[in-house]
Amino acid sequence: MSHGSGRLAGGQEAHVVQFYPADGELAGSVSRYLAEGISSGDGVVVVATEPHRDAFVAGLAAAGIKVDEAERDGRLLLVDAAGLLGTFLDGDRLDGGRFAAAASGLLGRARSAGGLPGEEVTDGADGAAVAAGADGLACGGRRIRIYAEMVALLWEAGQVSLAIELEELWNGLAARFPFSLQCGYPASVLDAPEHVDAVADVRRLHGAAADARSFPCELGSVRAARHYVAGLLDPVTDQVLADGVAIAVTELAANAVLHGRSAFTVIVSRWATRIRIAVRDNAPLARASVTLAPVAPAAGESVKPVPFPVTTGHGLSVVARLASRWGVEPTPAGKVVWAELGAC
């Protein structure tokens, strides 16, 4: 991605795309992303359909977030995706100026200390609101993270080229104002051969492309996870990392099944020069543990040694030797273990 440099937990870039196989997968990942932001004091904007907004709100509540309170104090803005899209979609074209007006107005509200509590946005911002939004962004305030799926609505309506154009508009806005953005597309978009080039454009326009799939707690899932990840790799550009990625996903998946005794989800994020494998399971970190230090943190990043259960054996040591960076993040339901291979 040419615009934006912010990072999320675990080294994810500011503009991330997720291709989700089912709404439940989307609800889980987005709810965690939003909850992390609200807990950190970020301004959080959700631009989604009503069913997805309801699912995210339920996920936030399950994570212990007081949603009503977050809305009242302006930390959480819930926006109707179709309504907002309608303010700058003019038939078969996008009005870039009206997009900038609507989006910068939302960013200004999210960043400001007071916000406009509890209001659901369905229309665009006028000139005064744009000015106020820009002032709010220029004057500092909260960090901002956004989940938006207007691009998916355009894609589903057959306006694929407009979805790509909207991704570019988001990137242009990110060049002016810093924020983290996650976009979501149903994984079914990957199955249409006529859209291969468009999907490649979507991946190109994001700092990272994240694909996810869940697996049951059984030994066969380890091989299935390895085959799933292998199928996502480009046979040319990713070949140099393929062997290491296969070992990493095998070890992390085996750790979830054999020692966590848990079903698990594999999340694969791809950048131009590196690949991130994350395995999320429902097993908490054991109290009895050994400590393995993650290697080669990114410049300026402080990474503490991470405790792992003594039952993990040598698998994670192998991952540590292969990875340029790796770590563990506790979640309300368990943990995520991740490893990055390639140049950071």
Rank of each mutant, 00 (worst) to 15 (best):
L77Q: 08
R213K: 08
V266R: 00
D281N: 03
G114F: 02
D68C: 08
V57E: 02
M150G: 14
A298P: 04
D73S: 11
F215M: 11
L233F: 02
G108M: 15
V222H: 03
V245Q: 08
L258N: 14
P51W: 06
V279C: 10
T49Q: 13
L107Y: 10
V303G: 00
A9Q: 13
G115N: 06
P216F: 08
G315M: 02
D23F: 09
L34Y: 03
E156W: 07
V202Y: 10
A187L: 04
A22K: 03
Q239R: 10
H314V: 12
S317F: 12
S29D: 04
F88M: 12
P332Q: 00
K304L: 11
P51R: 07
P284F: 10
G300R: 10
A101C: 14
T237R: 13
S289Q: 02
V16L: 08
E165R: 02
I38F: 02
E71D: 07
A278G: 12
C183G: 01
A62H: 12
T87D: 15
A129H: 14
G136Y: 14
R176I: 06
R321N: 05
G83P: 12
R7G: 06
R261L: 10
A48I: 07
L341K: 10
G6T: 05
V30L: 04
A82C: 11
A81N: 08
V236T: 12
G41D: 02
E165F: 03
G4K: 00
P186A: 09
S29P: 00
S188I: 02
V57P: 09
R270K: 14
I275C: 05
L8V: 05
V17N: 10
R213I: 05
R204L: 08
F56G: 00
H227Q: 09
A225I: 15
G97H: 10
P307G: 08
V47Y: 09
R109C: 15
V336P: 13
E36K: 10
E69V: 03
V196W: 06
G83K: 00
A187F: 04
A14P: 12
A320F: 05
G97R: 06
S40Y: 01
A148F: 13
A174N: 07
V44F: 09
P117M: 09
L316W: 05
R287T: 13
S269I: 02
L89K: 08
A296V: 11
A212D: 10
A320Y: 08
A296F: 12
D73V: 09
Y147I: 04
A343Y: 06
L153Q: 06
A298W: 07
G37Y: 02
A129T: 14
L316Y: 09
V45Q: 09
A298H: 03
W155D: 09
Q18W: 00
A209F: 00
P117K: 08
A175G: 15
G115S: 05
N255T: 13
D191A: 11
V266F: 13
R270F: 07
V199M: 03
L252S: 10
A27R: 06
L34P: 00
R287L: 12
D238H: 07
R321D: 07
Y185Q: 11
D68T: 14
V130G: 09
G28W: 07
A299V: 13
A132R: 15
C217F: 14
A224I: 13
F56P: 00
L77H: 03
L154M: 04
S2G: 15
G74E: 02
G91S: 11
P178E: 01
V306I: 10
A163S: 14
T87Q: 13
V257S: 04
S302W: 02
C344A: 12
S289F: 04
E71G: 00
